[in-house]
Design a binder for these strands. Structure first.
Lengths: 210, 210
DNA sequence: ACTCCAATGTCTACACCGTGGACATAATGA
DNA sequence: TCATTATGTCCACGGTGTAGACATTGGAGT
């Protein structure tokens, strides 16, 4: 497994790492196979020993990016003092948005792996952390809210959609979208307000008629 | 201005029309300049007499797509019986989402023109309709809410972000995102519920402390 | 220790893409 | 009528993703 001139030690990992660096500042489109292999000091065709095609490589990067997002969320959740459902939910939402703002390129590419996120248990073997996907962390927060009697169990599905939509939309619009020019401090302020509004909206649903 | 063999009558419009057809099923990425010119029966380089580069063409298509979105919203708004603020807001949100679901490709490309949407008055000379952008239609609904005393004037900015984020996120996730496989009827149902929740959240803000 | 084999990387080549520069043609207005 | 300007064509370049045939390597089995 030594890196001889010919056989690269672990090319697959190296390619993903390089692709990650390309995606970090500029998003998924910046992952161009020939450039990745060039930076890895290898022929373009070598990549095809480890990935079916470019899309496959992008998906691999997306999984890692998604894992980083999950790690960021877990980190912020762990930092909440009293882990009641409201605080957990607030932490999930705020860190989801913060990640999109701090790492717009990685967030962009992570979106490509959110398909799998729904079904699979863990997005990848994350060295540290619980290994839960962002989706599962959101669900866990809502379940806590249920356990606290602040949300009826039947409304969890609706609440997932409400929260995810609000948070994802805000992240998309402000990170790389039409609102990308807004000053960061205003965006942060709106982020906490928006998430708080979502928490309220979800919680209020418990006593609604329909 | 007749279409002789050499000089095309109105090539610019023809190119935009063809590009629109390419984008409709597959989004902005499907607008490939060579294919557009091929379908228009013209050399690739001919496009450069009317557009600075491919991106310029995409933006032109985006403007038209955005105009169609605005038209769809206006259409639904006009169909509301009693045009109070709540009904207007509900109509804006639902039609925004419906457009994304019915025309995912056009919605995708329209996103590229939402930058301009914020500042400019009209996205383009729409033959019919008021010529307001979707953003302005949203603002108008909120202003109506203000006029009705259901929203304080100072909260309009926040409300815009809350509504746009929620609706845009939902549209993104369900139209081409990780939730794209959800059955349409469930999505429609969630759409009306989600928008209703947003209307409530916005309105409730009037009596909030901060 | 030698041999074979599967894994891995290279070389060459193709069809596509966006785009630049020089040229050809058509419409226009003096 | 003729020159000017707008518009479209030709040829070319460097870039991309990807296919097929070949070269090199490390390791397994004898």
């Amino acid at each position: 497994m030594t890196a001889t001139a010919y056989h690269h030690g672990d090319l697959r990992a190296a390619l993903v790492a390089v692709a990650m660096e390309l995606a970090r500042p500029a998003g998924a489109e910046a992952i161009v196979l020939r450039e990745v292999t060039r930076r890895a000091g290898v022929t373009p065709r070598a990549a095809y020993r480890h990935f079916a095609d470019r899309d496959d490589l992008v998906r691999a990067v997306a999984q890692r990016a998604l894992a980083q997002l999950a790690a960021a969320i877990e980190h912020r959740m762990a930092a909440t003092r009293e882990p009641d459902g409201r605080a957990m939910l607030q932490a999930v939402g705020e860190s989801y948005i913060a990640f999109a703002l701090d790492e717009p390129g990685l967030f962009d590419v992570a979106f490509f792996a959110m398909d799998d996120m729904l079904n699979t248990t863990a997005p990848e073997s994350t060295s540290c952390g619980t290994g839960l996907s962002p989706y599962q962390l959101l669900e866990a927060s809502l379940e806590t809210l249920v356990a606290e009697g602040r949300l009826s169990a039947g409304d969890v599905g609706d609440a997932v959609i409400t929260c995810w939509s609000g948070v994802h939309g805000f992240a998309t619009l402000t990170a790389r979208g039409p609102l990308r020019e807004l000053p960061r401090e205003l965006v942060d302020q709106q982020s906490t307000r928006l998430v708080a509004a979502l928490v309220d909206a979800v919680e209020r649903r418990r006593s609604r008629i329909r």
